[in-house]
């Protein structure tokens, strides 16, 4: 899964999708995942990064990440390859 290109995100969590004109707000963890996606990382790489960084149960991190990705896909922010 790849984030659509040209998606703009600010440090404050405001995200703008120029294809649809929709905007979103994200919390800091959300911003971080978007940045990883923009950098072309895979879900597995992102998960490993989160596990390394955060004090949280591995399975919860996994569940939350996939839930978040589901939301990105629901909002059509991902390229379907």
């Amino acid at each position: 899964m790849k984030l659509k290109s040209n998606i703009a995100i600010s440090e404050n969590g405001f995200m703008f999708d120029p294809y649809t004109g929709d905007s979103y707000n994200l919390n800091s963890t959300g911003v971080e995942i978007i940045k990883h996606l923009k950098a072309g990382k895979t879900n597995e790489e992102i998960l490993a990064e989160l596990k390394r960084k955060y004090d949280a149960d591995d399975l919860i991190l996994e569940q939350n990440l996939y839930d978040f990705i589901t939301m990105l896909s629901h909002y059509e922010l991902l390229d379907n390859e």
């Binding site: 600010s10 405001f14 703008f16 905007s23």
Partner: peptide, 10 residues
């Protein structure tokens, strides 16, 4: 402009 919208929204 979207920047105004952003400022207000955030």
């Amino acid at each position: 402009d979207i920047s105004q919208f952003e400022q207000l929204s955030m």
